[in-house]
Design a protein around this nucleic acid. Structure first.
Lengths: 252, 252
DNA sequence: GGATGTATCTCGGTT
DNA sequence: AACCGAGGTACATCC
């Protein structure tokens, strides 16, 4: 992986590096004092300051300060980058369409310009997602409740898709909503929408709604009660030990 | 702003640079082939590949590939970074507590190590947020509906806080939920939760629920109808032109 | 520190 | 391209 780095580069050299990078599909980092203007889904202005700017070959642009995980400004993948020199300042622009968004970065000074070609074909392997929780239940439905039978995943209703649709030991239709972490009122509302949609479509009653998550907040618990929904505490395999029906706030 | 950059550094030099950066509160970027393991809220493994690693003085850590806006791995602000050399490889670790999370990056090769001290005191000025939409309505409630009176913002209910609570021209209590962009079923569910909570608390009827957004999806429109809620099309000032009551899907 | 809701959310999957 | 929901969401704000 070739790395070309220019310390305190003349603007023309930096511009060359940028254009080379745009052509060869490399990744570029710029360090310097700059001003950033953005206009698109929202609009913003960032007064001058020293930042790290990253331009990826897929059209991503990131402007990072020395704090925070999120870039202070950015452009999503698929954007088109360009650079030019205007009145002795390096200007980097990035535009995307649909929706139209553009960002303009004006460098007052440039401390470093680097061109990288990263070779990376690996895939991230992630464990502990909601999908893992689903697999756990499908592999052994009894962890949910003795006698529970999972029938469909992602079953469509007028209000959206139910994570797991099945029947309990009595044969009562049951909607199960899964969350990988402690949930608040929104998840209860989500489950409630699905259950009500089921009860409307073929007009019916006594459809159970079960929220499966590690735990719920107080307000979510109240809502579960008023909406006559249930909660079962379960976690993804590796992210905890608790399991089984218990108080909604159990968390050791 | 001093910039110290080492191309293809010996591991000892890179380690020195890292420790210097940790001490002086600088920002560090590393480029090289590495393997990443993460364990915390979830867990992940990323096989070897060439990436850009950023360590911020606030404890943020980012691992960026040459595509995507999101880092493939990261550590949130507040984490504690450390580095060491083990069996001829540079190892960078970052740990945080509450919740406990750790990431380990093992560099097989290192192409660049850079130490930056970014001077940046500016604040981002952002326009077009939901807050702007709220201000617009509070400044002139008639843009919502003739005769509407806003009484409270963030009014608490058993189900959460209502963006704007007020009365229409007839004096009917009204809950208003604001969204800065086109909304789906979740926003309807949210508004519905608030309205039902209001109708429960002092048991009552005929409380209006109005969703204010640029537009809604088909499914959201259906839900609005079944829940007897209303929709008014409004945008933040600069992000569009449409305004006034209209078909939920109007979007030109 | 927990709870709640917004976000230029991002991202993947599906229609 | 739009829609829908998950996310190690991050982040601010309020308690």
């Amino acid at each position: 992986m070739p790395v070309l780095s220019l310390p305190d580069p003349p603007l023309e050299d930096a511009l060359d590096l940028l254009n080379t990078g745009f052509e060869c599909g490399g990744m570029i980092t710029l360090v310097g004092e700059c001003e950033v203007d953005y206009d698109g889904r929202a609009s913003s202005h960032l007064p001058p300051g020293e930042r790290l700017v990253i331009l990826k070959p897929d059209g991503t642009l990131l402007v990072h300060r020395d704090e925070q995980r999120k870039p202070v400004n950015w452009q999503p993948p698929g954007s088109t980058h360009s650079a030019r020199i205007d009145r002795d300042r390096l200007i980097v622009e990035s535009v995307r369409s649909s929706p139209h968004e553009e960002i303009e970065i004006v460098f007052e000074t440039l401390m470093q310009a680097t061109l990288l070609e990263l070779d990376d074909a690996s895939d991230l392997a992630l464990a502990g997602s909601e999908e893992d929780l689903r697999q756990r239940i499908l592999a052994d439905p009894d962890v949910l409740e003795a006698g529970f039978k999972a029938m469909v995943t992602e079953r469509e209703t007028a209000a959206g898709a139910i994570d797991i649709y099945g029947q309990d030991a009595d044969g009562t239709p049951t909607a199960v909503e899964l969350k990988r972490r402690r949930v608040g009122p929104d998840a209860v509302g989500q489950l409630n929408r699905y259950v009500e949609a089921l009860e409307r479509d073929p007009p019916s009653r006594s459809i159970r709604g079960i929220l499966v998550a590690p735990s719920v907040t107080d307000r979510a618990e109240e809502l579960l009660a008023t909406e006559d929904l249930e909660f079962i505490s379960l976690t993804t395999e590796e992210s905890g030990l608790s399991q089984g029906r218990s108080s909604p706030n159990s968390e050791e």
